[in-house]
Amino acid sequence: MPMNIVVLIKQIIDIDQMKTDPKSGEPLTQNIPMRIENLSKNSIEAAVQLKEKNGGKVTGIIFGTDKSNAAMKEAFAMGVDEGFIITGYSGNNPTYTASVLGRKIRELGSVDCVIMGNQSADSYTGLLPGLLSAALSMPLLGNAVSVSLEGEKIKIKRVLDEKDEIVSAQKPCIVSVTQEINQPRLPPVLQIMAAGRKPINTGQAEKGDFEMPKVLSNLAPKSDRKREIYEDMDKGIAEISKIIRGEMK
């Protein structure tokens, strides 16, 4: 049965390239390119695979900035059919983020499944799936390593600390995915070119009455490690075994 799938895409600065100032500890974010967050790529891949199997449509939503067009085009090239960019993202109140995204999803009308990453790589909040589940009254199938449609139900496999579970729920559902779910595709050049011509819908986020936390500081943690490095293995072993023995007492 054709599915109406929404995928939430997050754009972050490329944190692997970001450095912190060795003296002040300040994050050096200038001139660092933006990229689609890795788990969003896994989410797009999962959504597109569901569409390829069952038919239907994938709608991508980015709550981002006016610089989010490139991310949406990349999502198009991977197989997303329609895209909405909502500008005005500030990122430090997940409840606000969820309210903006929830409103957009409701506007889209009948949706079978909303897919997103379980925790984003920059802030690791992991809150959005639960927030949207409550806001949209859709059951949450969390931490999926596989997802499929079976009749009117969505079925996932999830990995928990003590066990693996296969769980299902009547659609519509929220599905959060982990990076183990798939290997996101690298789109062929033709698709990338076609994606560039596809129109993107943009709109501005409504400001709500939401508290934003006050940032007191955001600095690299100080490392007071001794950094005694031995290239002479035997000397190192002698020193280290002394240290370990001392701590074992």
């Binding site: 409840t95 992991g126 809150l127 639960g130 589940s133 931490n143 934003m212």
Partner: peptide
Amino acid sequence: SPLGRDIAGMIAATLKSLVITE
């Protein structure tokens, strides 16, 4: 924890509260 984070989001949505994580 996996369930803890899901629940935290749900409670924050129902209370419409700011949530600080991890």
